[in-house]
């Protein structure tokens, strides 16, 4: 997200697209987990397992994970950039938010992969 790698225009384009996708995917997620499937059932082990292993829902969770974290950490980056304008601060904010995004996506993706492919115990 550094300004040398990407122009701010492109970063904001990503921010808008991930924002719109997040609204859509979070709506589906919330409606499915609380309305379409009764909440008590939705959080049961067997139901959660079947959702992770459902090709569309599992993929949707992974996409949601990526778009919401890119959007969220870029939002945090924007707020932090506005607080201090030194070169060091800007560079640190860019690097830390990118690392935080990648690490959090990696950890969430690990959950999805293990839920789909791991052995049940």
């Amino acid at each position: 997200m550094g300004d040398k790698i990407m122009t701010e225009r492109k970063i904001m384009m990503i921010q808008y697209v991930t924002g719109i996708l997040s609204v859509f995917l979070v709506s589906v997620h919330l409606l499915y987990q609380g309305v379409i499937v009764p909440y008590e059932k939705a959080i049961s082990f067997s139901q959660v397992l079947s959702l992770y292993r459902h090709i569309f829902y599992g993929s949707m969770l992974e996409i949601l994970l990526v778009v919401i974290l890119v959007h969220g950490f870029n939002g945090l980056r924007i707020i932090l950039l506005e607080l201090n304008q030194s070169q060091d601060w800007s560079k640190a904010v860019d690097i830390i938010t990118v690392i935080a995004t990648v690490v959090t996506i990696a950890y969430g993706t690990r959950t999805v992969i293990l839920a789909v492919f791991g052995g049940v115990s």
């Binding site: 082990f45 992770y52 690990r110 293990l114 839920a115 791991g118 052995g119 115990s121």
Partner: peptide, 17 residues
């Protein structure tokens, strides 16, 4: 994300638990 990772046994898990 941290909370749902307990579905696969938490940070050191290997699969649905």
């Amino acid at each position: 994300i941290g909370d749902t990772s307990f579905f696969v046994g938490g940070p050191f898990g290997t699969g649905p638990n």
